[in-house]
Amino acid sequence: MTLYVWGYLAEYEKERDDILQAVDTVFRSGQLVLGPSVKGFEAEFAAYHGVPHCVGVDNGTNAIVLGLRALGVGRGDEVITVSNTAAPTVLAIDQTGATPVFVDVHPGTYLMDVAQVEAAITERTRCLLPVHLYGQCVDMAPLQAIADKHGLPILEDCAQAHGARHHGRIAGSMGRAAAFSFYPTKVLGAYGDGGATITSDAEVDANLRRLRYYGMESVYYVVSTPGYNSRLDEVQAEILRRKLTRLDDYIAARRQVAERYAEAFAGTDLITPVTAPGNEHVYYVYVVRHPKRDKILESLKGHGVSLNISYPWPVHTQSGFAHLGYGKGSLPVTEEAADEIFSLPMYSSLTGEDQERTIDALRSVLSTI
């Protein structure tokens, strides 16, 4: 049986009264769209990140789409990012009419290899989109230096890095804007879809608010810029407000799980996560690596353990992105990692018993592989 679905159920049982109270609060308020819960969450989420502006939207993909558009990215432009990410990162670029341009990842962390970015910049480049993957941050200081040199904005993809820090700075506070997803599995997850884009730039904030509401500004039914219907739901916002107060506790629990895994697999040939210098990892997923990955996963099924792979197919190898022209071997580090990585159960409500079950099964398989 897969362990991943248990995280939501265990968390819900623990927080059920608060979650149901949140729903009731919204339904009794009489304001179901862009009401006090969205406004409250936006203010509190912005404050958590030390920035003045947060715009709640309907999902993490649109948080990136609106972020890119608010920064002026559009048809004919290029956005530099990575292929080792969830497809929505790249789909969001495509939805603006821009072209994704990939650089490879660092072999130890699987994060954007910043040393490759400058060579990928062309006269059409309009934005750099680093993905803070698996729970830790891209090396932002050299990336910002490149961005400043070429006059380019940075949009951080923070969907997997709620609360992560890089040399003391929290993910989402280092670029011109940052996009978040609140999909239920995230470190800060809603009970459905949700997203947000944060910024310290008042102009970008104004653009975001206009874009999420059809492109309307001060006068209803008057569109100044074609936009979207992309509003964060009041119910999800109220749930997120309450869960935000527990975010640091969720992170602490995840770090305890990660510490136990690291201890359990020390001395084996399983490669456990590497935290980059200056990073404070939040372990959205706990990604390990082994050259016999597929054989290990198949053997684990005999122990009743089914594990996930994040991600088995790099974006540039998928048929839906064949038009980008990246052939096999174009991003060798990304491709090699995709053949060997897999994820161990990781969520804040994971019990010690369930974790030990995974550890015992995997250690048993590793001893015979």
Score class of each variant (00 low, 15 high):
T185M: 04
T125K: 01
L344C: 12
L143A: 03
Y214R: 15
S348H: 14
Y283A: 01
L143C: 07
A266G: 04
N84S: 14
T96A: 04
E259V: 05
C127M: 07
Y214M: 15
W6G: 05
T351W: 03
F180R: 07
L128M: 04
D58T: 14
R242C: 09
V315Y: 02
K39C: 01
I309V: 13
F41S: 00
V51W: 06
R69H: 09
E336T: 15
G172N: 11
E238C: 15
T99R: 08
T334D: 10
Q116G: 09
Y228Q: 14
L344V: 13
G35V: 10
P142Q: 01
D294N: 06
Y261R: 08
L91I: 09
R210S: 00
E44F: 00
R357Q: 12
Y286F: 08
L188S: 01
A206Q: 03
Q31G: 11
L66F: 12
R169Y: 08
V73L: 02
E123M: 10
V223L: 13
G67Y: 05
D148K: 08
M174W: 13
L324K: 06
L9M: 08
V315C: 06
Y220V: 15
A86I: 04
A147S: 07
V285K: 04
G40L: 00
V57G: 11
C137K: 05
P52R: 06
T275R: 11
E15I: 01
H290A: 07
K328C: 09
T89N: 12
P100W: 00
R363L: 15
G329F: 01
L331Q: 09
K295Y: 11
E11L: 04
I121Q: 02
I309L: 05
T351H: 01
A159W: 06
S319N: 13
A262F: 14
I93M: 00
T268A: 05
H132D: 00
L143F: 09
E44P: 05
E203K: 05
A161K: 07
R16N: 04
A159H: 13
I93A: 04
R254G: 05
A119F: 08
Y48F: 11
R363T: 14
S173E: 05
G35P: 13
T2C: 14
V274L: 12
S37Q: 10
Q318G: 09
L133H: 05
G72C: 06
R75S: 04
